[in-house]
Design a binder for these strands. Sequence first.
DNA 1: ATGAAAGCGCTAACAA
DNA 2: TTGTTAGCGCTTTCAT
Lengths: 342, 342
Amino acid sequence: MAETARHHEPRYGNRPTMKDVAARAGVGLKTVSRVVNSEPGVTPDTERRVQEAIDALGFRRNDSARVLRKGRTASIGLVLEDLADPFYGPLSRAVEEVARAHGALLINGSSAEDPEREQELVLALCARRVDGLIVIPAGDDHRYLEPEIKAGIATVFVDRPAGQIDADIVLSDSFGGAREGVAHLIAHGHRRIGFIGDQPRIHTATERLRGYHAAMVDAGINVQDSWVSLGSTDPSRVRAAAEAMLSGPEPVTALFAGNNRVTVTAVRVLADRERPVALVGFDDIELADLLGITVISQDAAAVGRTAAEHLFRRLDGADDAPARVELPTSLIARGSGELPPA
Amino acid sequence: MAETARHHEPRYGNRPTMKDVAARAGVGLKTVSRVVNSEPGVTPDTERRVQEAIDALGFRRNDSARVLRKGRTASIGLVLEDLADPFYGPLSRAVEEVARAHGALLINGSSAEDPEREQELVLALCARRVDGLIVIPAGDDHRYLEPEIKAGIATVFVDRPAGQIDADIVLSDSFGGAREGVAHLIAHGHRRIGFIGDQPRIHTATERLRGYHAAMVDAGINVQDSWVSLGSTDPSRVRAAAEAMLSGPEPVTALFAGNNRVTVTAVRVLADRERPVALVGFDDIELADLLGITVISQDAAAVGRTAAEHLFRRLDGADDAPARVELPTSLIARGSGELPPA
DNA sequence: ATGAAAGCGCTAACAA
DNA sequence: TTGTTAGCGCTTTCAT
């Protein structure tokens, strides 16, 4: 152990490099590079010798070095709210599939709906020089991304428009979906309809509320303040909001739930009551068919796929004006939305 | 446009480098590096000038170059089966949180249960020199990882033991959980109990089947071949298997579902029948409480967290013998598992 | 067909 | 406190 580490030596726990492979195979460095990258101009015999050295040493190309030279990382970043949310799993998976088809890896991070954390994540991804970025915005000001986009990081926003910045955007028709859902309840005889949604700083929450109002106005119904509640999707908050709307002298006879988490809690609240209350939820949920829950369904995978396809179009050089794609939602009637007023 | 690109110039769409910042601020390169990395030894005044240049140019450190020098990427890889599966979302999120606490990014990929794709993904992550790797094995031979592990990439396997390789492993007690679930059915009077599980090459599937057999043997019940079906979790396959077991002269009176996807389909099949059939499923499912489904619950987030913590212990230098951690499962009785035989 | 040399943007070591 | 130099492992260019 008389070895003296004279100079710095990161070497990743002592991995062989192309130089090592070259030495062992008795060829030049560039020849190894050619073999590793399947470039032409190597005789079968040389190639075999190089390959043997690669296998013997357990060589694996260091992509960090490669990236440094080539300028492209063959990776894209996805910043979403929470991977544990059943809406984002399929979305992320769809993005991954498209990335894979383009030979790229996906790095994703959860912002936990915190604008600061979103920025932190996005900048970390930029520092790693991802080729492109798909962002489900938590914050409402994305000017911090300007230098990045100018520097060539293609960016697509999803689910909510970006603040203060011009870029491609893919979203579901929150307004139209909510409007349709609420109109559905009205068509089944309801007039006093409650709306429970996510925090007002979240774009989809206000869009869906706008859809609710539009449907009510269309029907000539005067919305009472007490019928609307925006806030955290924490079960206790949602439960309290629902119970408030369902009690008192003039309780609502139907509820519109602004997203999947609200729906889940609403279903639980309604399960505890004897008087039937109609319910339509935004977002489909697993097993909702068995529980007979009527929902406005949005296709998370389609959203992810569309966003990723737009991103790679940009990466392939498309430079037309930023597009805004709005994907339709669909109402799935399963019973809870068709209950008449009690 | 008389500009001639004489030499190669990747430069990431023309991003400023530390050199550019240094020139603009009128300082040396290393001083910029110090400011960017918050190293000591810079006067407040110099720091301010450098920071101004950074902001003006929109400089962002290139982590590829940094990694190349430092040897650590501050990122870990997670290879799982399918991010769209509700079991893996929370698991991944838990890993991400631990990584974040250690200042690392998470790169994850879905193997789609394909051993080749798993290897492809893992090697891509290794080429990017992730510091560590958490793998939910799809294949049963991981010798291809030997050079990587030897080279210092810490690795933790999750959910299923790795094939042919010695490494940390974190899993749920599939055997014990299934045994408990089946014993629960037996305790409620069942003797003819069906088991529908995932493909036999998946370790958890055979472990759970082993648990089933153990419980049956404990009760002195002779298991009939027709009561057991392993295979794809595709709804049509599961439906066919369930219907076969539920028909004929001596149908099963209870079903044990080997994982969340099987449970979902089983619930749908049973919903179509009038004769009540008891059901216990492995893995909890959202809304299972409302449907009264009895399950063996495993804590996906705890599995992810534990695995990540082990990984970072290794990255922090721990070199004790590979550990095998088995997390307990818990039976949640909600009604379907307590139905008596018809 | 093959290789030598330069350099991607950064950090470690060493001077000044 | 600040700057200079070398070099991480690879690809690019250009020569042989």
